[in-house]
Design a protein around this nucleic acid. Sequence first.
DNA 1: TAGATTGTTAATCGATTAACAATC
DNA 2: TAGATTGTTAATCGATTAACAATC
Lengths: 216, 216
Amino acid sequence: MSSKIPMSIMLYKRLNSYLHYMKQLPLGDSDNISSTVIAAALGVNNVQVRKDLAIASDGGKPRVGHMTKDLIADLEHFLGYDNCSNAVLVGAGNMGNTLLSYDNLEQYGIKIVAAFDCEPDLIGTAVGNVKILDVERMADICRRLDVNIGIVAVPPLHAQEVCEELISGGIRAVWNFAPVNLSVPETVTVKNEDMATSLAILRKQLAENIEHFGFV
Amino acid sequence: MSSKIPMSIMLYKRLNSYLHYMKQLPLGDSDNISSTVIAAALGVNNVQVRKDLAIASDGGKPRVGHMTKDLIADLEHFLGYDNCSNAVLVGAGNMGNTLLSYDNLEQYGIKIVAAFDCEPDLIGTAVGNVKILDVERMADICRRLDVNIGIVAVPPLHAQEVCEELISGGIRAVWNFAPVNLSVPETVTVKNEDMATSLAILRKQLAENIEHFGFV
DNA sequence: TAGATTGTTAATCGATTAACAATC
DNA sequence: TAGATTGTTAATCGATTAACAATC
């Protein structure tokens, strides 16, 4: 069990893209697919695909490949899209609202069961069927609902404080949308949704691209 | 010039975190900082930090380190935060609105100069001082404003189509928030803001974390 | 059987870390 | 000068790619 799963971000991105590719395929019920085909379609090395699939799936059959339906299920399972975790959201501002309205979130394995804010006007209102509660009650409610995942969508200045409050409520994983380095004990995992870095990389690549291909 | 800059995502994430760390420091005007200190504060290997800084900055002085003010400026320059690019946004739904209201975006080097949607009710309205225009006019306006960056924040089904329209308007870099593999010519760069993958990784880490440290 | 596809083993590449000499 | 910090060169580690044997 749990025999040393690689943690490379790239692996996960690729698996996710294979999954998207297959799901968008016209689906015959007993269709098969091979790493070679996926690789060609996505412009990735085919050995890469085979290795990746070997990590996430039971493996296919020589000359036949993988049964598409099963492979999709395997990837969804590996990526955790098939069993939902509960999560709480802190910060019902713009980003918070976006996440609350993003109904696909459940497809990707988490369900927001409660949202918190400190703004009196927001407390008591609801987005979809998630009520926005007073952040004062957060730690307590996290404990009671036995939630492990907290989403931080508050302004940067409050992020650290909110994060600590989540942790005091027993949260073990923080999905952070604030542009801040959160400091947490080693028992807690943080994943930064880091728009600034994404942008920096995008623009670097753009610059290289233009240097390489010129304009037009 | 442009002497082979490494493109590793991790490098950029780290540089960004060093920058955040320094900016949050109480600032004396002529204070210095060393890679050792940064490394210790962020829990990173100190040689790593030194190498990273060497890539983005002119370098510090032995025994003294870097002048904080200058180092901040160098990192901001390297990450492109000091000169803004214009961008257009497609899709004025939840995510689009969040991006439009996210005034920090300019701090991170891009400015949204126009937004587009296909929804008649939205066309003509504005968010902040960005007007939402008919997506029909998009390619044309992109050309006229000579914009290189397009942000895709439309539902997955329309993403590919919208992306092609952007490209026909001369866009060379696409920041994609739709959970889709966009296919683009090699002259165009795509950066996926890939929440699903982030979530998958977060949950894997959470699982490992709990396996390692147990509950409580 | 022949051939496509698989999984595996070895080679390459790049990024991280360790060791060390240079310098203010 | 002594010592902290720098940059550099070599060693390690991990991820990607290439070569190949196994199999339906």
